[in-house]
Nucleic acid binder design. Structure first.
Length: 283
DNA sequence: CGCCAGGTGCTGA
DNA sequence: TCAGCACATGGC
């Protein structure tokens, strides 16, 4: 089956640090699992070739939503194009889309991603799924679902330590318990606006000022979120503050004013541009 | 080997 | 509100 890519570039989007479970599959393809559905996606020009463990009629809405293929966000992206710096980043990251992820997987993944590098996060999450997810056989390979919060709530932090989670192990287990117990109700957060959702998610163990913005952006489609990690901090200080010291909070406040209500899109373009062309943003 | 990574929570000013 | 610190681990 084929879907119109509508300008989406798979590689740019799936290797942009928003998500950690896709693997290269052939020349222009990626394999992964959403929920219990195994997917093989391949870029073929203006189309995306799709196959997977469900009937095509079920794959289409799944992928359309995940990749936001009908997002109609062209105007939102354009609204962030307010100066030559972001303009260059946007040019360089054409085809980048904001993925719409499942909230719990997104939340748990970014707790794992704190003070960590993306390659290692991928390995950690892979081991987590193998240990606690459900097996889904497909075409001779056994895939694993992302573990439910209720499952991880019963896990022992020491077991996660042995999987290489370091000091994040107890955070992840406590976060799972908060979510599984309904203390933090992710289904309710879906219906909340940015401010209330932010306050609610900040109550989760291991979720601070940066992780919460990632989760709001990638898991709840709140495009006014603006995560400031070490990459974005560097880019912003260099490009907008003449290299001066600046707290993450002030960078975020500036970005919201400067780029407007879709500043999260600008953030993702800057993040990707900085990682793929560091020379443009060297300190 | 040393530096670094999509930081957080805590403490003391 | 902010700076400074400890925290585990492995990629490069």
């Amino acid at each position: 089956m084929f879907l119109p890519a509508r300008g989406c570039n798979l590689r740019t989007t799936l290797e942009s640090g928003q998500t950690f479970r896709w693997r290269p599959w052939g020349p222009e393809g990626f394999a992964g699992i959403l929920g219990t559905t195994v997917l093989h996606l391949a870029q073929q020009g203006s189309q995306i070739a799709v196959s997977g463990s469900e009937a095509p009629a079920r794959l289409e809405p799944l992928i359309t939503r995940y990749l936001q293929l009908e997002d109609g966000l062209a105007r939102a992206w354009a609204s962030t194009d307010v100066d030559p710096i972001i303009h260059a980043a946007l040019q360089q990251t054409q085809g980048l889309r904001l993925i719409r992820q499942e909230p719990w997987e997104c939340l748990a993944s970014f707790i794992c991603a704190t003070f960590n590098n993306i390659t290692r996060v991928e390995g950690m999450i892979d081991r987590l799924c193998r240990a606690y997810g459900r097996a889904v056989p497909y075409r001779g390979t056994i895939w694993f679902t992302f573990p439910e919060a209720a499952t991880l709530a019963r896990a022992d932090a020491r077991a996660l330590r042995r999987l290489g989670f370091g000091y994040r192990a107890p955070y992840l287990v406590r976060a799972a318990r908060q979510v599984a117990a309904g203390d933090v109700d992710l289904a309710a957060v879906v219906r909340m606006g940015y401010v209330e959702a932010r306050e609610t998610l900040l109550r989760v163990e291991g979720v601070g000022e940066k992780v919460v913005e990632c989760v709001l952006l990638f898991g709840f489609a709140h495009y006014e979120a603006f995560p400031v990690d070490v990459w974005i901090g560097r880019v912003m200080r260099r490009a907008y503050f003449r290299g001066r010291r600046m707290t993450d909070r002030r960078i975020r406040a500036f970005a919201r004013r400067h780029f407007g209500p879709a500043c999260g899109l600008a953030q993702q373009a800057l993040f990707h541009a900085a990682r793929t062309s560091p020379e443009l943003f060297a300190p």
